[in-house]
């Protein structure tokens, strides 16, 4: 039986880059608990001998030839950007280097 705490939800929210209020986190914790309890039933039949299906059709080896196609004009690429400078996407300062 899953029992999910607000701290766990807060951790998930950080992973997912969602700045949620405490009240929202509490509400989500309660909802997730109900949903997860319900969906956890999959484990009842998912025995080790069953292969997983990640894709509905058994296709393999779909390729593209290594041939250049026209790119977007930079104006098009940048048209929807909230902030642009020097033909680049301008982003707020990055604190933590990867």
């Amino acid at each position: 039986m899953p029992s999910i705490t607000r701290d766990e939800v807060a951790h998930l929210a950080r992973l997912a880059r969602l700045d949620l209020t405490d009240e929202h986190l509490d509400r989500l914790a309660a909802e997730l608990d109900v949903i997860l309890t319900s969906v956890a039933t999959v484990a009842e039949v998912a025995t080790a001998d069953i292969p997983p299906t990640s894709h509905p059709l058994p296709l393999t080896n779909v390729f593209r030839e290594d041939v250049v196609h026209p790119s977007l004009a930079p104006e098009q690429a940048l048209a929807a950007a909230p902030a642009v400078e020097d033909q680049r996407f301008r982003v707020p300062r990055i604190l933590d280097e990867e």
Binding site: V62, F63, R64, E65, D66, V67, V68, H69, S71, L72, A73, P74, A77, L78, D86, Q87, R88, F89
Partner: peptide
């Protein structure tokens, strides 16, 4: 299908797929 040349002016070698535009999809380069 965007070209890979080094040193091109910024954002001149992009398309919906490599910009991650909504709805775009990848296709593997053979």
């Amino acid at each position: 299908g965007c070209p890979t040349g080094f040193g091109a002016p910024p954002n001149t070698q992009t398309c919906p797929t490599c910009l991650g535009l909504p709805g775009s999809l990848p296709v593997v380069n053979r």
